[in-house]
Amino acid sequence: MWAEKTPDRVGFAGVMAVVAGGLLMAPLWLVFATVHGPTSFNEDRAVLGGSMLFWRMLLGGIPNLLIATGLVVLSSRLALVTGRLARVGYAPLLIGLIVPALIDLSIQALGAPFFLPVAATGLVLLAVGTRHNPRVGKPSRVMLVSIGASLAIAFAWALLPGPLSDSIGGYRIYGVFAHLGAGIGWAQFGASTLRARTPTRDLTS
């Protein structure tokens, strides 16, 4: 009996979807922050002819769906064979990504951040639940917790009274945690997952 490393093309595709979603989220937030204007006066058609609502829709929808697609593809590696706690975290994480993305695409804008704590909770539970999973190394778990913390901070910031938040450019601070920081975190998580140990297949000669 001998072991042969086999290419995990499906897993690679899943990782690339997560990385792409993270890498897309960060620049989309920068574009949105630009078209929102230096204050709260929108600068419509300032970037590629798209309105502020158009860029908000893309920001809230496309990256989340890419990340969720990648996580679904990686489900066997992340949750299904790991344990109950990982599965418990995996479900709210997907809900916290997919549901608001579909809402944002349907209303063609960026909806309220009600699902941020759902996703944040799922991220932390998934990180704890995969601590004994050799396919999810410590760097990947750290990134999951970091993304969860970033989303939790963004949600807490969104709870500030409107006048106080607006007076200090609160929507930009919110975006740094909810989109820029989270996007960079997802890209780093995908990269760290790609470096995880490749599964082997036993062949009998």
Results as ranks from 00 to 15, higher is better:
T34G: 10
S167K: 13
A178I: 05
V99W: 06
F115L: 03
Y174V: 07
T200N: 07
V19F: 01
V10E: 11
Q188Y: 01
R197Y: 02
A46E: 06
T39N: 09
R131S: 10
S146Y: 03
F155A: 08
P163W: 08
S165D: 13
T34R: 09
P117V: 03
I168F: 15
V136L: 14
A178C: 06
W2E: 08
T82N: 07
S51H: 05
L180G: 03
T193W: 05
L24P: 10
A112Q: 12
I168G: 07
R56P: 10
S140Q: 13
S75L: 06
P113G: 08
A17I: 06
N133D: 10
I62W: 12
G49M: 03
F189N: 00
L66N: 15
W29F: 15
P92R: 00
R9H: 09
T204G: 09
T198D: 01
M57A: 08
A79N: 04
P163C: 11
P63S: 13
L24N: 14
A3S: 04
A79S: 01
W55C: 09
G50N: 12
V99A: 10
S76Y: 05
R172G: 11
L65W: 13
M25T: 07
T204R: 13
A68G: 13
V31M: 12
F54I: 02
V99K: 04
G11K: 03
W2A: 11
A156C: 09
A79I: 01
A178Q: 04
T200I: 03
I173N: 11
T121S: 10
S167W: 15
A13P: 02
G181T: 01
T69N: 12
M1Y: 04
R45Q: 11
F41N: 08
G89H: 09
L23V: 08
V176N: 07
A101C: 08
A120M: 03
L94T: 01
L110M: 15
L180I: 06
L126A: 10
G129Y: 11
R195S: 11
L85S: 12
Y171D: 12
W2P: 00
H132R: 14
